[in-house]
Amino acid sequence: MFRGLFYLLIFPGLAFQVVCGLIFEWIDRKLLARFQRRIGPPWYQPVADLIKLFSKEDLVPLGSYDLVEVLLPLISLSAVLTAGLYIPIARFTPFSFEGDLIVIQFLMSVPTLAYYLAGIASVGIYSILGGGRSLLQYFSYEVPLLITISGPAVMAGSWSVAEISRSQLTMGPFIIFQPLGFILAVVGLIGKLKRDPLDIPSASSEVVGGSLTEFSGAKLGFWYLVMNVQAVVGIFLLVNLYMGWSNLTFPFAAILVFLVEFLLMVLILSTTSAVFARLRIDQLAGLGWRILVPLALTQLGFVILMGV
């Protein structure tokens, strides 16, 4: 009983994920700042931002569904936190079961749908535009991402992330066999996180704040938390699926390797967001369906052929 609570609330649950999310935000912002010749924020900046948001007045625009608005970020947060529970962190998996990859995929989609609903619920004109865009974007990246992610599963012959991760100790990390798949998965992850260059739903020069335009105070704080935790969970997932080095038996080495892989992923995400311009929504749809899907299918085909 207490053990379960510990897993849920401390490690690898709430506390751990949130702290990781804040650390991720800081590293990301710092890296971006250095890419842009800036000093960047001090280490406590994400926490300070969060405290500031939580202490601010919460404005609810007239005509919006305020209960829905409160529930949406909370639901998304719990969804991504739950998804995080099933992902092994340096070999440690309390809740793993066969098929959890599908569950994680499903749970990770919840914030996107909630984001869409948030746009509709808060009746602002930019929110509705942003919400619609997030749904369009969802259809563009989700299909290639799903196809790509089944690559490692097929290769390992299991739909459990822990199992896939472990099988790489004997077979070698999948990034070597599926480099294309890894790139596609990163693209899909960027789309999921609505990060530059796929920040179409929240592009400030086009739709102000996207779905979150009318959000303020603690609700906005929760949304930012959702984004960061989602990023961390996504990174953990990719690390496990493609870079299975972290399953070393020696625990200290496993943690170290896991950390290095995590930082590597953050570096990749920051660099892409610094180097690429935002795509137009029609360009993204074209990219998703005309390029990413065929590539993902090719990758999956190779994996299946290799297995035969």
Binding site: A33, R34, F35, Q36, R37, R38, I39, G40
Partner: peptide
């Protein structure tokens, strides 16, 4: 940019 000094001043 990473290997040069930042331009901004704290």
């Amino acid at each position: 940019a990473v290997f040069s000094r930042p331009d901004t001043v704290a």
